[in-house]
Design a protein around this nucleic acid. Structure first.
Lengths: 118, 118
DNA sequence: CAGCATCCCACGGGATACTG
DNA sequence: CAGTATCCCGTGGGATGCTG
């Protein structure tokens, strides 16, 4: 105990939160990744599944995620253009975090519902 | 298969991401919660532990988290004022999500380090 | 269908200075 | 020590309209 450690409280032993949060920036990003976890989906599907996201934002976020190597973008040269988005390997690495967020969300939802009932 | 289900892809079976993300809003919030997970900490400790967060933002986020019932604020009426922040039970419920984020962050960091070495 | 362009606003966050 | 008060800016995001 030669160090000038005032307390034995664990001072958050290295927390590279930024390393992960960099990929989750934006209010919709987690939802996007989550909706892609079930497999490749097209732009419109994604849009309606997520709910109220605007096309602009969805495009923006998807491009960003693509640039970061989180999602893959596959264009099928069909007559009405069709684009499929899917998670890359890197994207799949983010799933535990997203899944945990979703799980917590579920628990929180149930809890608040119970409080309202009481 | 009477439904007009085009594909058997799982369309993200309910994702109350918002329920959880509402508590993680802001770039610093996860870091704040993470740094409180080791036990109660004072304002200054928190500030320097997190790193580069400004006092204004830290105050703002802490107040917000307090209002939402995520953190508790205990004022010790000592001569130099001393305030301790700690996680409430609700705040502790968020830990799995934060921990997952941190864990993913670690893996991502290692991975990128390895890529740089190659 | 899958976007891009444009406008416009709100909020998060940094910097700096000041206080009980 | 633990904030508060301003000022300022960048970006996220919504709405609407147009295109290949």
């Amino acid at each position: 105990m030669a160090l000038t450690v005032r307390k034995n409280k664990s001072p958050a032993p290295q927390c590279p939160i930024g390393e992960c949060m960099a990929f989750l920036r934006g209010a919709w990003t987690p939802a996007i990744i989550w909706n892609l976890s079930g497999g490749a989906r097209r732009f419109g599907e994604l849009r309606s599944d997520i709910g109220k996201i605007s096309a602009k934002v969805l495009t923006h976020r998807l491009r960003e995620l693509e640039d970061m190597g989180v999602v893959r973008r596959d264009v099928k040269p069909t007559s009405p253009p069709s684009v499929e988005y899917s998670l890359s390997d890197l994207g799949k690495e983010l799933m535990p975090a997203i899944a945990a967020i979703v799980s917590v969300g579920h628990r929180l939802k149930k809890r608040s519902a119970r409080r309202l009932a009481a």
